[in-house]
Amino acid sequence: MRPLALILLLSGVAAPSAALAYAEFQKHIQATSGRNVNCAVCHAHGDGPDGVKPGQVGSLTPAEVDRLNRARIAFEPGQTVDSPILNAFGNHIVFTVGKRQLLALKNDPGALAGRLQETDLDRDGISDGQELRDGTHPLDAQHGDPWKLMKVNTRRYGLHLVLLAVATFLGLYGLGHILRWFGRTAEAAMQGLRDRGRDEP
């Protein structure tokens, strides 16, 4: 999939013009992670903010435009915003980094991930920054680097796994013995049947 994504990038069609505002991040993620990503990492719509579909600028109600404008002037970090064209992760970036630095980071898109090491919005055990590096979705607990998810989940569900292993072991042990017992008993019963058959006629 990686070369395919690159081809698309070179031909300039992967990113619809609408989303070009932050295409640096998209390009960087795709190049470093090898995974194809779209604007839905941070935006409400996968095709980015421009357009008339739900979650795009053209579809906003006046109240939402108001929220959008408030988000657009959140230049310094630490301001809670609720932009209608961003998803929870996008709003979280604005909160953590602030608009000013975010715009500056366009020249160094890899550095954004480092600023988001502390949080894990989908609580899947992989920090938002790491998910950004891996090209996986920071808001979907089912989505993450498979290997990292496995390590996290093995720890998280350790008790379940141990109990399941114990159950499996006990089951195998019990099954072994019960079948041996049943085999013996059945053999005895069969022998009994044959003996009776011999006696009767």
Partner: peptide, 18 residues
């Protein structure tokens, strides 16, 4: 154990699952 630890969709790019 596999299902608990490794979500099946984690192998693919997420735009595919929109």
């Amino acid at each position: 154990a596999l299902a608990l630890c490794v979500p099946f969709e984690s192998f693919f790019s997420y735009p595919l699952f929109e």
